[in-house]
């Protein structure tokens, strides 16, 4: 039975690999390729990029032969809260300092779950901050500023 259906997951996957391969390939062409005897900085990456494009192409091609189950549910809420929490920590650790930055990071991350309530999130973040200050700042002596310059310290 012929059908026009194809495996969307694999198609996306193959296309992604081809795109990444092309990116690395073009980037390495800007670098000196050199010869097989004395390889330049671009030689090995260029070979790898070509391989990646080829493999991505095969995956893409195979995607049109079989049909598969879909991608399944996507954790939008998780993506929306978990990823920014790490970035937030990076943006504020120097400016706000360890305590406020960590508290807010944990607070933001908490809302990635639909079951979290605001009060529980505050309690959890506060407890976590106290614990981390004790363990990481005092216990292990990591050089963090407890409160940063943005807060006037």
């Amino acid at each position: 039975m012929k059908s026009v259906e194809f495996d969307k997951t694999n198609a996306v996957c193959g296309a992604l690999f081809v795109a990444i391969g092309l990116f690395f390939g073009f980037e390495s062409l800007d670098l000196e390729l050199g010869t097989a005897f004395r390889m330049g900085p671009g030689y090995f990456p260029f070979l790898l990029a070509c391989a990646l494009v080829l493999l991505g192409g095969i995956i893409l091609f195979q995607a049109f032969r079989v049909e598969h189950e879909g991608i399944g549910p996507i954790a939008w809420r998780g993506l929306f809260f978990i990823l920014p929490s790490a970035i937030f920590f990076g943006l504020t650790i120097r400016g706000l300092g360890f305590v406020p930055s960590l508290f807010l990071t944990a607070f933001i991350a908490s809302f990635a779950s639909s079951r979290m309530t605001p009060i529980l999130a505050i309690l959890l973040s506060a407890g976590l901050t106290v614990f981390s200050v004790l363990v990481f700042e005092y216990g292990l002596g990591l050089p963090f500023r407890t409160f940063g310059p943005w807060l006037g310290f």
Binding site: I82, S85, A86, I87, F89, G90, L91, I93, R94, L102, T105, A106, F107, A109, S110, A112, S113, R115, M116, L120, A121, L124, S125, L128, S132, F136, L142, P143
Partner: peptide, 25 residues
Amino acid sequence: YVLFPIIMAFCSIGVYSVNSNVFDL
């Protein structure tokens, strides 16, 4: 849902403390 904020916080501290590079985060 109680666990993963804790994991996130420790991940952030851990990664940052390797060489205090915010770009790592």
